[in-house]
Design a protein around this nucleic acid. Structure first.
Length: 958
RNA sequence: GCAGGGGUUCCCGAGUGGUCAAAGGGGCAGGACUUAAGAUCCUGUGGCUUAGUGCCUUCGCAGGUUCGAAUCCUGCCCCCUGCACCA
């Protein structure tokens, strides 16, 4: 078969006939399916293809089912990657050039076209041979290209501005502080992809406790802690005795802390000034006022105090912190240290430990207890102490309860008390927040990163409770495919919090209220599905004419077309046309995307639809797709283990690629593309497809004459209908793999049996088979199906307009006959092997007596395979009882295979076997077949006849 | 750590209470066809046993519920995905 010419022909026909450019059609129901538009930054590989192919198949199936289907496509080019690539290409950065020329297969001479963002975007979309758009065309997607958009189109930007105006009106946009990872050297915020070291390292929030130093007006030592709730157990403050601390001025206060912490604070507080140094010798032994407990506590030395960590000052809570306990014991057990620093040893010795948290595991004094348990001797065993801390902390957080010392927080769970105490301390001015990276983070350029606290960051308030509640309501009414992901959505909805909306850099829409900021890429890709419904028309309008009234009218039905026309200078007709388009296509039937996007795109989309659009103009459901790995490994274009669409389609044929993408797992499952398995699958498929084409060429008999059918014909017809029904059922649940297998391998199997059983195939049946197969395979293999439909089966219009086959009645008894033949065949083969009879002279079948069939009916009352129950039930019947020992035998069989016998329907075994005599003789390589009723045999040398059961004739061979 | 998903026979993968030693495919073995290879078709593929049978063992591990569990419940171990400024 010449795939390439078939593909070209089919695609040309679709284009000529504008098959996939739907117009409003009041006669037809609309079905609008939308798949997350890609970031067109490279070559399209089979991983991308899986997502889009799945969507395309669903779209084509719905078209076959009679819907007016819309599937648009756009290009998400917002954000920084394009800018970064342009910079690097201009610099002729060798690594980037290599990626573009080798991995994306872009000719080197074209690289100069990509020295501007627009140039790069346009090239990647329209010119790149291996790009997404070309790939999608190769794959034969039914995309309405008139509606193509880029997220930097001027009209699109107007739409985004309108979107955020709406959110703002609902008070869902806010401004506030926000910590980010920041590289002082590069003077920019850094994401994971900007890093040389420390990917995935997060930001930790510390509470900065302020201890007023005695003898000073406004001077505080500050200690950073992750555990503000432990303030009630403080006994003293720890300083590193060998260190010179820095004094800074912040507002009216002066803070003492490590040099490193001071450096970090510069990025988190305004107007930090270093004003001096203080040696720890000046501080040891002095008293400070401890926050939370409002008591004076002394400053003592501890070697574990690391100026690199936190503020270099630690508040001591020996009852709960193992390391504090260890340091205290060290101090208490060696008077010389106190002497050296001029401390009051009596005070050290008499230090009272204050229990604050009670846990099941450690009681009230976890610090002391775990030191003993882990046999920790002093504060120098840092590794052990680190572990001890972790254990105590976890135990306390999950099961701990605050004790009396915590005052009004007594009795609260630690997990709850923590935030309450923190907030109270901050409110009282006794604490502040301090953000710290969890580990070392280094930017690409080699600069060590810190946390920067943005003062006036804009947010989308996904944390808003009312909004969450309403969005959750929408979610409840939506169809989630597959349903198992609903839980995940619900969890995400609970967890979602206010999310930064703007960035300083990147392509996209300028933020209307602060023009030096750009709406970040996840913000301009949440409700664009609505825009697609009018994209083909809005493209022709000058962007500056578009205003809020315009969008309000089209999407929300506010105002009138005339009013909008007056304000924008647009024609009333055009405005009404736009609105009609939106009203026809919305609500969106399905939003399709990869599972990974559930926590952002997909969830945001539900939220924002809820906030902006009226109830009946949101989305009906989501389809969530699994990703694709290659030979068990993640695909990575930099490592070269990718399969590009152009290459694989050329090699295998587009329709076989589409088939293979669906053949192994359901759409939402992760697929492992293994070339070996794929080609095996294709081999089988190809045999079947070629047979079909051959058959199709040989038949044109439309009408099935039931009178001319033999039993096997009927069986096959029945089987085809059965498969079609299954297919429709599966497709409606989006179980594409099961549906595909029904009509490829399963139907092929049926056909194989049909051929085996029937020497002459019935033309009408074959025609029916081929025609319906062509229809239902068409969403999966559109090019071949269209070729078969138009040029072999000589049908006029596209196969996609031909309508789904109707659901057919299935006649179970027809199947039973073939089941009997199969079973008998299997049994005789088994016996032949065991008895070592290769060419039987004679095969005798004994058919079960009438009373055995009647006894079968009695089984309806039996609900479990209990021999006692079965025999009791059977013996209650006179005709059965008469049979004596044989009845017992039957009862035993029935009870051991109850489920099998229960569903058995009465069939004429004699006739079925007789009709198939010839077939059985041939298959079994036998000379003669005789069929008797159990009690009328007259020939039963081995006494087999008694063993006959309904559905299972007794067999004798010789 | 938190959240979601998952662990099935040589391999890939179906299977959510009885017809399950467990679909389908692959691999492997045997047979038919062929001069041969390939393609195609048939048969077998946990163990023992047997004229189409019966028994034992098996569905991550350990318990439990039930007349009956791969399937339900509890605990444990392991794997994958996401965790926010990143598209």
């Amino acid at each position: 078969m010449n795939f390439s010419s078939i593909e070209k022909n089919s695609q040309k026909t679709w284009e000529d006939e504008k098959l996939f450019s739907p117009e409003i059609d009041s006669e037809k129901k609309g079905f609008y399916i939308q798949v997350a538009y890609p970031y067109p930054s490279g070559a399209m590989h089979i991983g991308h293809a899986k997502t889009y192919t799945t969507t395309d198949i669903i779209a084509k199936y719905k078209m076959l089912a009679g819907y007016n289907v819309l599937m648009p496509m756009g290009w998400h080019v917002s954000g920084t990657p394009v800018l970064a690539s342009v910079e690097k290409l201009k610099e002729k950065d060798s690594e980037t050039v290599k990626i573009f020329t080798e991995n994306f297969k872009i000719p080197e001479k074209d690289l100069k076209k990509m020295h501007t963002p627009d140039g790069l975007v346009n090239y990647m979309v329209d010119e790149a041979e291996y790009g997404y758009k070309k790939g999608m065309k190769i794959l034969g997607f039914g995309i309405d290209w008139r509606r193509e958009l880029k997220t930097i189109d001027e009209q699109y930007k107007k739409f985004i501005e309108w979107q955020y105006e709406k959110l703002n009106q609902k008070k869902l946009i806010g401004k506030g502080k926000y910590p980010i990872r920041y590289s002082p050297k590069d003077k920019m915020a850094v994401g994971d992809h900007d890093l040389k070291e420390g990917e995935g390292i997060g930001i930790q929030e510390f509470t900065l406790l302020k201890f007023k130093l005695e003898g000073f007006k406004n001077r505080f030592l500050v200690a950073a802690t992750l555990r503000p709730e432990t303030v009630y157990g403080q006994t003293n403050l720890w300083l590193n005795p060998e260190y010179k601390y820095t004094v800074i001025k912040t507002g009216k206060e002066e803070w003492i802390l490590s040099e490193k912490a001071a450096e970090k604070l510069i990025y988190q507080k305004e107007n930090i000034k270093k004003i001096g140094k203080m040696n720890s010798r000046e501080l040891l032994g002095e008293k400070v006022e401890a926050p939370g407990i409002d008591r004076k506590i002394p400053i003592w030395p501890a070697s574990f105090c690391d100026p690199e960590i936190g503020s270099g000052i630690v508040t001591s809570v020996p009852s709960d912190a193992p390391i504090d306990m260890a340091a205290l014991i060290d101090l208490q057990s060696d008077e010389s240290i106190a002497k050296k620093h001029g401390l009051d040893f009596e005070e050290i010795k008499n230090t009272k430990i204050i229990p604050i948290i009670k846990t099941k595991k450690f009681g009230e004094n976890a610090g002391e207890k775990i030191l003993k348990e882990m046999n920790i001797k002093n504060q120098k065993e840092l590794d052990k102490l680190e572990k001890a801390k972790e254990i105590v902390y976890k135990e306390g957080f999950h099961s701990g309860v605050m004790l009396e010392a915590a005052g009004k927080f007594k009795g609260l769970k630690v997990s709850k008390a923590k935030d309450l105490i923190k907030e109270e301390l901050i409110k009282q001015g006794k604490a502040d927040l301090f953000f710290e990276l969890e580990g070392k983070v280094v930017s690409r350029s080699g600069g060590e990163c810190v946390v920067r606290l943005l003062d006036d960051q804009w947010f989308v308030k996904y944390g808003n409770k009312e909004w969450k509640k309403n969005s959750k309501k929408d979610l409840d009414g939506m169809k989630i495919v597959p349903e198992v992901f609903r839980k995940q959505y619900e969890q995400i909805f609970n967890w979602l919090d206010d999310k930064p909306l703007t960035r300083a850099k990147g392509l996209g829409t300028k933020f209307p209220w602060q023009k030096d900021q750009v709406i970040e890429p996840l913000g301009d890709s949440t409700v664009y599905m609505a825009y697609f419904t009018i994209a083909h028309l809005i493209n022709t309008i000058e962007a500056q004419k578009l205003n809020d009234e315009f969008f309000d009218f089209i999407f929300l039905g506010k105002g009138s077309a005339k009013n909008v026309a007056d304000k924008t200078g647009l024609k009333v007709d055009l405005i009404e046309e736009l609105k009609k388009n939106f009203d026809y296509w919305y609500p969106l039937a399905f939003n399709v995307s990869a599972i990974e996007l559930i926590p952002n795109h997909m969830s945001f989309s539900i939220f924002q639809h809820n906030a902006i659009f009226p109830q009946n103009k949101r989305q009906i459901g989501t389809i969530n797709l699994g990703m694709l790995i290659l030979e068990g490994k993640k695909m990575s274009s930099s490592k070269g283990n990718v399969i590009l669409i152009n290459d694989i389609c050329k090699k295998m044929g587009t329709d076989y690629v589409r088939f293979s993408l669906m053949n192994f797992v359901e759409p939402w499952e992760e697929m492992n593309w293994q070339s070996k398995e794929v080609s095996k699958g294709i081999k089988n498929l190809n045999n079947f497809v070629e047979q079909i084409f051959k058959l199709a060429n040989s038949v044109d008999e439309e009408k099935i004459d039931l009178k001319k059918l033999n039993d096997v014909d009927k069986w096959f017809l029945n089987r085809i209908n059965f498969r079609i029904n299954n297919y429709i059922g599966k497709m409606n649940e989006f179980e594409l793999r099961s549906a595909l297998q029904e009509m490829s391998f399963n139907l092929a199997k049926d056909f194989k049996w049909y051929k085996r059983r029937n020497s002459k195939l019935n033309n009408a049946i074959i025609f029916y088979f081929v025609k319906n197969w062509c229809k239902i395979i068409s969403p999966f293999m559109p090019h071949l199906a269209e070729e078969l439909w138009r040029h072999v089966l000589k049908q006029k219009n596209s196969v996609f307009l031909s309508g789904l086959p109707e659901k057919q009645k299935i006649d179970k008894s027809v199947g039973a006959g073939e089941n009997l033949i199969e079973k008998v065949l299997d049994d005789v083969i088994a016996i032949k092997a065991l008895a070592k009879i290769e060419k039987p002279k004679k095969i005798v079948f004994y058919i079960a007596d009438e009373w055995k069939w009647n006894a079968l009916k009695l089984l309806k009352k039996v609900d479990r395979p209990d021999f006692g129950l079965v025999i009791k039930t059977l013996m209650a019947d006179k005709t059965v009882k008469k049979q004596g020992k044989t009845a017992q035998l039957v009862a035993k069989e029935f009870s051991s295979r109850l489920m099998e016998f229960k569903d058995l329907e009465k069939i004429d075994e004699e006739k079925i076997l007789n009709d198939s005599k010839e077939f059985l003789l041939k298959e079994l390589n036998a000379q003669k077949i005789e069929i008797f009723h159990e009690k009328k045999s007259g020939f039963d040398p081995q006494n087999k006849a008694v063993k006959s059961m309904p559905g299972k004739p007794a067999i004798y061979l010789e």
